[in-house]
Design a protein around this nucleic acid. Structure first.
Length: 288
DNA sequence: CTTGGGTCCTGTGCGC
DNA sequence: TGCGCACAGGACCCAA
């Protein structure tokens, strides 16, 4: 589900409740999600202070003062929700703050020393949690081969043109390939391609240098726009604080099958095609 | 090496 | 109202 902007929105939402605070209780309500949870995960979390929250691609990395990092991936349907004492209430109200009853698919519950409760809910269980050595976390198997952050300095035109050079695969697939660029998913790939007028069906390696180059700022822009809007709230996705993101109202291609293309004077309509099992939305009139 | 397909899971919405 | 099917924001793993 969540792509880079949604994960970044969740990270930012968790930050004020977790960073500098101690985990006072943790509970797991099943043995694992996509994979089993690491051994003694609960004991390795309790009593640890959160030093910072980082993001790498679609992963959240929660650095603890024990030298370990809690790695979180939301998969397709994962949500992190915060239940916290209402700051507008008096201290007595805070102290007796009651958290809402746990719901179906609330798999991991983490209580913080400030009274906040962080709940990881994931119906489809494609999400994951692991504990890594902080010093070597980014070299972990799951993170080692992930490509550059699209909003970072190492993702530039030269890198990108070289990365897709000679690729026989459609540009859609290349952009979904996390080894080429980190954090993109089905929505933002469709949106970036629409912004550049490139068809998702085009072979990556056959794009002209100019057109390939144009994807770099388009990817950056669509991600920045989505982050500024608080991500996209589709189906059950919400920001960590329960607020909805608004970027779904700005989609030009994704989910707009049979609707008019938003390119000025185009008059085409958005089509849906399936590429390696995923829907691609694009305008066949202005995307080539 | 690259590339495509199957797979893990639950929930929802649609046509019949 | 029920049933079966298609589809959903990811990405690992393996076969060719």
């Amino acid at each position: 589900m969540p792509e880079l902007p949604e994960v970044e929105t969740v990270r930012k939402g968790l930050e004020p409740y977790m960073v500098g605070h101690m985990i006072v209780q943790a509970n797991i309500r099943r043995e694992g999600l996509r994979w089993p949870f690491p051994e003694n995960m609960v004991a390795r979390l309790i009593g640890k202070r959160v030093e910072r929250l980082r993001r790498r691609s679609k992963y959240i990395l929660c650095d603890l003062d024990s030298g370990e990092t809690l790695l979180i991936h939301l998969g397709m349907s994962g949500r992190m929700t915060i239940s916290a004492p209402d700051k507008t209430k008096d201290m007595v109200g805070d102290f007796h703050h009651l958290h809402p009853a746990l719901e179906k698919h609330d798999h991991v519950v983490i209580d913080i020393d400030n009274g906040a409760r962080i709940t990881f809910n994931d119906a489809r269980r494609f999400g994951a949690m692991d504990l890594l050595d902080t010093k070597t976390a980014t070299q972990h198997k799951l993170l080692a081969s992930i490509g550059p952050e699209p909003l970072g300095n190492s993702f530039d035109e030269n890198y990108f043109v070289a990365a897709i050079k000679g690729k026989n695969t459609p540009i859609k697939s290349a952009l979904l390939d996390q080894r080429i660029v980190a954090g993109l998913g089905n929505i933002y790939v469709c949106e970036a391609l629409w912004r550049t007028g490139i068809s998702p069906l085009s072979k990556a390696g056959k794009l002209s240098k100019i057109r390939a180059t144009s994807l770099v700022p388009a990817i950056r822009a669509v991600l920045n726009d989505a982050i500024a809007a608080g991500g996209s709230s589709l189906k059950d996705y919400r920001q960590a604080d329960g607020e909805l993101g608004y970027f779904q109202h700005s989609f030009a291609a994704y989910g707009r099958e049979d609707e008019p293309c938003k390119t000025p004077d185009c008059m085409g309509q958005i089509k849906r095609v399936v590429q390696s099992g995923r829907s691609s939305f694009y305008c066949s009139k202005c995307q080539h």
